[in-house]
Design a protein around this nucleic acid. Structure first.
Length: 474
RNA sequence: GCCCCGAUAGUGUAGCGGCCUAUCAUACGAGCCUGUCGAGCUCGUGACACGGGUCCAAAUCCCGUUCGGGGCGCCA
């Protein structure tokens, strides 16, 4: 099926709709449509059918597939190659009388890259479902042997070995899927945030001042000046509220020089940040739960079937997420005989206990001033606590957010309370002196959310090339 | 930053003072068998992180180094 269309500012002249997708069109969802279903049909690219899409083609049709040689089995009168691409595996049958370069193919190592052309057999009885009776096999790239890591070996390599050879690790379908889910998740979150009138912005990652102190920032040499890698876009997105952008969001890296060594911390992670004007913490929480829900909905739609094959059934969480205040948590812990002091953060043990009360996502609200950053708005009438919240899943914190201080005098007072020198933040405080609207926002760790969603044991599993205390390569 | 733990063939492991010229699986190579599909069978290749020490004897015990895993703190 060929279609011509014009969508938004993009001219998409003529596109081929894949046969397996023809009945799945959703009207009025143009961006989603582009992402999922349109492939350019013009130009001199490589003719290719994805392995997943072979099932939709006609039996006996001449097709071309590309992929990695997963394994080969040589028999007396016939040989089989198992070809893999990111959508599945395919059995390729080689009969010596049809193939000119059998000797050459016999020397191939696993994971070499091949182009296979031949006749499609839909009911060949192969485990892969479909089969190609090859007329031509081209070697596009030979893999060396031995492999540093087996793709289909029954023994799982150590995580360290896998990360050192991530390019092979992500060839494994289950690992590959993690990052396709991440893409869907972020797309779903973006779709919701964009639908609420937000503007996507990009703030600097090289900065002169610390966001919240300066202890945990990486130093960089910026020509003749000392600079830092930003740990959060917090100050910049707030300045944009004064700047009249009204609602902004940013997806970008955040750097933390903390020497932590846990399964839920990275020194570089992807932060999804929003900030909204004329809004309080309740508005921001609503934005958050709906964004998370939209992300999960997108994952279910795009990757749900594949996840189900792997034994992972995702549930769309109900909104609003339950809320519990910090003080209620302390009371609850006390009822369980666990002591937690007001004014201190909860330990992982505390949070595990609190998490038992909830099925999945929940908010802990009204954190004490002592554990929140200077920009956090105190709760009117109860200034020991703040208009703040964390989004939690069990013991894991996914998001931290709050209504912010918008009064410059209160802001300077809060700086001093936290032992910080306001003059170091003059560039920031200035934005509050000439008309700063009330505002609220949050920062969400994309890898954390992905880890929780897929039940991954380590945040590094949710990161292609993780940066931790010791790893900067690859 | 504090605390625990680990490092043996390409990969994952067993062994934890002499029985180790080191086990098993997988990978790789050779052969046999075979429309195979976690193929099967036979044979083979391949490893004790590095440096010092203890001991008649060290993969094994001790110290250091390097690399790695995890918990806490901190956070997303």
């Amino acid at each position: 099926m060929l279609i011509s269309t014009r969508i938004g500012p993009w001219q998409v002249s003529q596109c081929r709709l894949l046969p397996s997708h023809e009945n799945k069109l959703k009207p009025f969802d143009a961006l989603w449509f582009i992402k999922n279903f349109i492939r350019p049909s013009h130009g001199a690219g490589m003719e290719r059918t994805l392995i997943r899409d072979l099932k939709g083609r006609k039996d006996g049709e001449e097709v071309t597939a590309y992929g990695w040689l997963q394994e080969s089995r040589k028999l007396k009168s016939v040989s089989f190659l198992i070809l893999r691409d990111h959508t599945g595996i395919l059995q390729v049958t080689l009969k010596p009388e049809n193939i000119g370069n059998m000797d050459e193919l016999a020397t191939l190592n696993r994971e070499s890259v091949l182009a296979v052309r031949g006749q499609l057999k839909l009911n060949a009885g192969a485990r892969s479902g479909v089969e190609i009776l090859a007329t031509e096999v081209k070697i596009l790239n030979r893999a060396e042997s031995p492999l540093p890591l087996g793709v289909i070996d029954p023994v799982e390599a150590d995580f360290d070995t896998r990360l050192n050879n991530r390019f092979i690790d992500t060839r494994k379908p289950d690992k590959n899927l993690i990052f396709r889910v991440e893409s869907s998740l972020l797309w779903g979150i973006r779709k919701y945030i964009m639908s609420q009138g937000f503007v996507e912005v990009h703030t600097p990652k090289i900065v002169a001042a610390a966001t919240e102190g300066g202890a945990d920032l990486f130093r960089v040499q910026y020509f003749e000046k000392n600079a830092f890698l930003n740990q959060s876009p917090q100050l910049y997105k707030e300045m944009l509220m004064s700047g009249g952008l009204n609602r902004v969001f940013e997806v970008g890296p955040a750097f933390r020089a903390e020497e932590h060594n846990t399964v839920r911390h990275l020194n570089e992670f992807t932060s999804i940040d929003i900030e909204m004007s004329f809004a309080d913490h309740n508005d921001a929480m609503s934005m958050l739960e709906n964004a998370v829900r939209s992300g999960i909905r997108e994952v279910i739609e795009v990757n749900g079937a594949e996840l189900r094959e792997k034994g992972k059934e995702l549930q769309l969480p109900e909104v609003p997420f339950p809320r519990i205040t910090y003080r209620e948590c302390i009371t609850y812990l006390a009822s369980k005989g666990i002591e937690a002091k007001f004014g201190e953060d909860f330990s992982p043990d505390h949070l595990r206990e609190i998490g038992k009360m909830f099925k999945d996502f929940y908010f802990i609200t009204e954190w004490p001033s002592s554990v929140r950053a200077f920009y956090t708005m105190p709760k009117p009438g109860d200034e020991e606590v703040t208009n703040s919240y964390d989004l939690q899943y069990g013991e894991k914190e996914i998001t931290s957010g709050a209504q912010r201080v918008h009064d410059p005098e209160m802001l300077e007072k809060r700086f001093r309370q936290k032992g910080l020198d306001p003059s170091a933040f003059e560039f920031y405080i200035r934005a509050f002196r000439y008309g700063m609207p009330p505002h609220a926002g949050w920062g969400l760790g994309l890898e954390r959310l992905l880890m929780i969603l897929l039940d991954l044991p380590n945040i590094r599993e949710a990161t292609l090339f993780p940066r931790d205390r010791t790893r900067i390569v690859p």
